[in-house]
Every structure is written in structure tokens, then in C-alpha cells.
Design a protein around this nucleic acid. Structure first.
Length: 260
DNA sequence: ATGCCATCCAATGGATGA
């Protein structure tokens, strides 16, 4: 089972690119972020015709997450628990029925948090506390769990081409990185770093200032694996070439292959 | 130092993003 995370930066703007990419990559599961659409505006039938189950948790204009899956989905849940007043659509869960076994997946779009300090940064850290609680709860099932999405966190200096440019940014501030480590410390593993070491691996390049041409990227799209999922990990990858295609998202697909 | 570009909604500009 190959699971992808892909921040598409708008389903309307990425419709053609996503339609081209799906039959090329043939993902089993895609966790989408920033669909920037309400559920009724998502082109569900189009992707169903391409062989995918479609589940979305959208909102008007911004944010929004979704799941495309060629495998059956069960027990879909929308929204991150812990704050009934939070109206931002950033979390969706489902159980994917693989050929060998089932995997619980969570797709997430973690708040950006800039400018920091400020209310948006406070919201980011509070959201990460809620995610920590949900991540702990998911571990109790003892089934394989994959939490994948746009974390808006640069875990280590080696995950940025120019780490010095990010020192005061909400993506790299000590509080954000500590909150990310606290989730890992529950017993989760960064799938990419289980297989690939060293600098120079990025998942996002800004549209501005020639960031792509200069390879000025950051690695902020992650798949976190429970111990049971880590035991099934076969391979990982970043589809960097997608950033160079026509009308790309500023993020590229990142994936993990599980024996499931 | 800087939203330099892209997207969405709505309206010929503003908000947001990382």
C-alpha cells in the first residue's frame, strides 16, 4: 500500500495537474491538503470515474483536506477533536482496507502560524497540543497508524536549504519544533528519515524569488508512522519532479510504501 | 527587510499562504 500526502493548493487550480498525475503515480491512497473548496464543490464524480473513493472535509476558500483511495475506506471521521469552536477544516481520518491488513490514516493540514509571536502562532501551538492528544489516542488501537500531511514544521536545520532564513519563522521556531518532537516522542517515526539521511530533501519551494530554480526548498510535508506502521515500511520518496511540471502546486507529493 | 507569486472570493482589490 503506497500512501501519498499532497498539498495541492486548490482543487480548482490543480484539477488538470492532479488528473494527469494520478494515472502516472497510481497511488493507493492520497491525503490531500488545501483543497480550498467546500465538499459540494469538490469534483467527486470525476475522481470516482478514475477509480478512487473520495472523502472530503472542506470549507469555503481556504484550508480543506481530503482522501482519494483505490482501496476501500471505513470509519471516516472529520475534524480534529478537542475544540468544538474550531471551524477550520484541517483533519480527516479513515481506515484503509489493504490486501494484507487495514491501516488507520489521518490527513492533516497543520496551521502555518505566522506571524510569530501572535494569535496565529498561539493557534498553531494549541492545534499541535490537540494533535498530540489525538496521536496518543490513535496509538492505543495498536493497529498501524499513518498521520500524513502538511505539518508546516521544518524538523531540523538540514530540512531547509537556508535554515538561517527561517530562525524567526513559525515553521522553524523552537516551540513548533518542540511540539513536533513531542508527538514523535509518543512513539511515532518520521517515515522519510527512517530511510533517507542527510540534507537536500525538500517538499516545498515558494513560488517567489526563483525558489525552485535555486533549489531553495524546505521539507515540511511528512508521514508519521506508529510502531506498527513503521514495522511495515518498505520504501519512501518525494516526487520532486512534479514541482517542475506545468502549473504546479508549491508542494510536491511525498509517499511511504507499506507492506499492507 | 520586503508576499517578488499564486489562489480564492468577490469585485476591478483584499485576505491568505510559508
Amino acid at each position: 500500500m503506497r500512501i501519498y500526502t499532497f498539498n495541492i493548493n486548490g482543487i480548482k487550480a490543480r484539477f488538470e495537474a492532479l488528473t494527469r498525475w494520478l494515472p502516472e503515480a497510481l497511488p493507493d491512497v492520497v491525503l490531500l491538503q488545501e483543497i480550498k473548496s467546500v465538499d459540494s464543490g469538490f469534483p467527486r464524480a470525476h475522481f470516482e470515474d478514475m477509480g478512487y473513493r473520495v472523502e472530503t472535509h472542506g470549507q469555503k476558500g481556504f484550508n480543506g483536506v481530503g482522501i482519494l483511495s483505490r482501496l476501500p475506506l471505513e470509519d471516516v471521521a472529520r475534524g480534529l477533536p478537542g475544540d468544538e469552536t474550531d471551524e477550520q477544516a484541517r483533519w480527516i481520518e479513515a481506515t484503509v482496507i489493504g490486501a494484507a491488513r487495514a491501516v488507520r490514516v489521518a490527513g492533516l493540514y497543520l496551521p502555518n502560524g505566522n506571524p510569530a509571536p501572535g494569535p496565529k502562532f498561539d493557534y498553531k501551538l494549541a492545534w499541535m497540543e490537540r494533535m498530540h492528544a489525538r496521536a496518543a489516542a490513535l496509538l492505543t488501537s495498536e493497529e498501524p497508524v499513518v498521520m500524513a500531511g502538511d505539518y508546516n514544521v521544518i524538523p531540523q536545520p538540514e530540512d531547509a536549504a537556508k535554515p538561517e532564513a527561517w530562525v524567526d519563522d513559525a515553521l522553524f521556531r523552537p516551540e513548533s519544533r518542540a511540539a513536533f518532537r513531542r508527538i514523535l516522542a509518543l512513539g511515532y517515526y518520521d517515515a522519510f528519515r527512517l530511510k533517507v539521511q542527510g540534507p537536500g530533501h525538500y517538499s516545498f519551494w515558494d513560488y517567489q524569488a526563483g525558489a525552485w530554480d535555486r533549489n531553495n526548498g524546505i521539507r515540511i510535508d511528512h508521514l508519521l508512522l506508529s510502531p506498527q506502521a513503521a514495522d511495515l515500511l518498505e520504501d519512501v520518496g518525494i516526487d520532486k519532479a512534479e514541482r517542475g511540471r506545468d502549473k504546479p502546486s508549491d508542494h510536491v507529493p511525498v509517499w511511504a510504501q507499506l507492506l499492507a
